[in-house]
Computed example of a mutant assay.
Amino acid sequence: MKQGIIVFLNGTSSSGKTSISTELLNQYEVSFHHLSIDNFFNGLFHDYIDFINTSIESAEGEDVQVPAQIIIDPLITLFYSTIKFMSAKGMNVVVDTVNDNDERFNTCLSLLIDHPVLFVGVTCSKEELIRREKLREDRESGLAISQYDQVYCFNEYDLELNTEILRPDECANLILDFIRLNREYSAFKKLDKRSVGVS
């Protein structure tokens, strides 16, 4: 079975990934499924996260700091494993997440390296990210800027899209143009695992 294309949108919070994803889902030339880390956690695992939070609040005894990664990292591995599974089943997937952690990125790279990943940089200026955050009012102020250097540390992309210049529909059309031309998805395969502990 032919593997499905993984359109991996790499960008900070508020960079425009979800808007591009929506445009890709609304066109009819290439069928896509959208897998967002926000929907994955808040949708599929909403009750589980609530259970964990409630259990922590009701726990008695000394307040011991336990890393959230104990819970979060396995779920993120499941997120990337789900993408791999969907591609293996021949489904085209638009991935909407933030790669701001070395260990999690390495997991992503290991799982998806043998699949057709169209690695797309979704960028805009820091000033524009700050402006969008203020308009959205559903993101912690400064979140995008805190992610910026780690998210945009890559020097390999199949396609780079500046959402300050391009509208979401124009970005989607450039992605579709790339797919139509049957160009090789090579950038993701050129990436090296990041040194854990940098972030």
Score class of each variant (00 low, 15 high):
N42M: 12
Y152G: 10
E140S: 08
F178L: 14
L176R: 14
L159P: 07
V117M: 00
G43D: 12
G197A: 05
A88N: 14
N182I: 13
L109S: 01
L35H: 07
Q65G: 10
E103F: 08
L191Q: 01
Y157Q: 14
E103K: 14
N106E: 11
N173V: 08
N155V: 11
G11R: 10
L44Q: 09
R180T: 11
I20T: 13
G197R: 07
V93W: 01
L78A: 00
S81M: 03
S31I: 08
N162Y: 00
S13L: 09
N10S: 15
V117C: 01
E164W: 01
V198L: 10
F41G: 00
V94E: 02
S19A: 15
L176I: 15
V196R: 10
F178S: 13
Q69P: 00
F105A: 04
R136T: 00
I56F: 05
R139M: 04
E156L: 11
L78C: 01
S186T: 12
A144V: 07
I179V: 15
M1R: 11
T163E: 04
Y157D: 15
G121D: 10
H115G: 02
P116T: 02
F178M: 14
R183V: 13
E184M: 06
E62W: 09
L191P: 00
S141K: 09
G11C: 13
I165G: 03
N99T: 14
A68Q: 09
E164Q: 12
H115M: 07
K2L: 14
E128M: 12
F41I: 03
T107N: 11
D63R: 13
N99D: 14
G43H: 04
R132P: 05
F85K: 14
V151A: 07
L176F: 13
V30W: 03
S58Y: 07
G61T: 12
I49A: 10
S199H: 09
G121C: 10
Q65C: 13
V30Q: 06
F105M: 06
L191V: 07
S13Y: 06
Y185T: 15
I49V: 15
R136Y: 00
K126L: 12
I179H: 04
F45P: 04
L9P: 09
Y48G: 06
V94H: 02
H115Q: 11
I130P: 03
N53I: 04
I71P: 06
E140G: 08
D50G: 14
G16P: 12
A144D: 08
L118M: 02
P67C: 08
F178C: 12
I37N: 04
L129S: 07
L176P: 13
E57I: 13
F51S: 15
I70F: 09
F119T: 07
G11W: 06
L161V: 00
E103S: 12
S186H: 03
D169F: 01
I72C: 02
K2D: 14
I52T: 11
H115K: 13
Y152I: 08
E164P: 03
S87T: 03
I5Q: 02
E103G: 13
E137T: 03
R104A: 07
K190H: 10
D38T: 05
V198G: 04
L75D: 02
